[in-house]
């Protein structure tokens, strides 16, 4: 092979050729775009998984707007997303910034905090289900000991929802903590040195340096959290089964129930497609309004 660069052609140091994107694009087309197209088609049919789908036009989509369970599921999903973000972000941010320090104790404790992330969602849900069993788990004696009577947290309408918020936080805070830890370690030490010369305290340094410098990390972490909460499923399935009643039936769970319990795969596809649209829109909006898309540097003026 000889390197020949015809005169007048662009230097080879620019963007890589479009050919390099082919493996990624093929993967995306086969495992994301194609299934999505099939789901879009199925959402226009009535199909029980047997025989051929029957085309019904927009019936499933019309039903989506009249279904009280769908309305409830959308509300619960929004609530879960907002609550997860509000609970996880401050804790993960503070833990991450704390863990960014180089002290040995911090390294050891970070490793311990990180453990839940190594467990599978199913294992996490089964563990918490056993812990919260109202008759045979620790909750059985903890409730009366605290004077609360029987503690059936997974059986209460409101409490079951908050258990899910809690368990998902327990499971995912370590991941976001890791993001913030990495983000915090990227902040140039010179900024803090300059602040100290100006007489800034720890709190004002956190507020005026650390937080603004973590802006992009916050966006990344938030997008992950929001999209994650919108598609949250396994923990709900194992921990509450959507219950009591339908009080924790968030959109992905409703989709599963309609699809694989009632075998209305057409309607389930309409729910699934709604979820795809909602998650895409939310992610795009977040990227846009946080200025993440324009990729402004956090180091301007340095």
């Amino acid at each position: 092979m000889t390197r020949k660069s015809p005169a007048g052609s662009a230097p080879r140091t620019g963007r890589p050729g479009a050919l390099w994107a082919v493996p990624g694009l093929v993967y995306f087309a086969v495992f994301a775009a194609l299934p999505m197209a099939l789901v879009a088609y199925l959402s226009l049919t009535e199909w029980g998984g047997l025989g051929a789908p029957r085309f019904v036009g927009l019936d499933n989509w019309a039903r989506l707007f009249d279904d009280p369970l769908m309305g409830k599921a959308v509300w619960l999903s929004l609530l879960l997303t907002a609550a997860s973000w509000a609970v996880q972000t401050p804790i993960a941010l503070l833990l991450g910034v704390w863990a960014a320090g180089r002290q040995r104790t911090r390294a050891v404790l970070s490793a311990i905090f990180f453990l839940p992330l190594l467990l599978s969602s199913a294992a996490v849900a089964i563990i918490w289900r056993a812990l919260l069993d109202p008759n045979f788990g620790p909750a059985a004696w903890l409730g009366p000991a605290l004077g609360l009577g029987s503690l059936d947290l997974l059986g209460g309408s409101g409490s079951a929802f908050w258990v899910i918020v809690f368990v998902s936080a327990w499971q995912f805070i370590p991941l976001h903590m890791l993001l913030y830890q990495g983000g915090a370690r990227q902040i140039p030490e010179s900024l803090y040195q300059a602040a100290r010369i100006d007489g800034a305290g720890r709190l004002s340094m956190f507020w005026h340096i650390t937080l603004p410098q973590l802006r992009h990390t916050i966006t990344t972490s938030s997008v992950l959290m929001v999209v994650g909460a919108l598609t949250y499923f396994d923990t709900v399935l194992i921990l509450t089964g959507g219950g009591p009643g339908t009080d924790t039936s968030i959109v992905p769970f409703l989709m599963y129930r309609v699809g694989f319990k009632s075998w209305e795969l057409g309607y389930a596809s309409a729910i699934a497609f709604t979820l795809v649209l909602a998650a895409t829109v939310v992610a795009l909006l977040m990227v846009r309004f946080t200025g993440f898309g324009s990729m402004r540097s956090t180091r301007e003026g340095m």
Binding site: P134, F136, S150, D152, L154, G155, G243, P244
Partner: peptide, 13 residues
């Protein structure tokens, strides 16, 4: 009783 809503039969509760 007052704590049955989350009891599972298949787990033997």
């Amino acid at each position: 009783g007052d704590a049955y809503a989350s009891v599972s039969y298949t787990e033997g509760g």
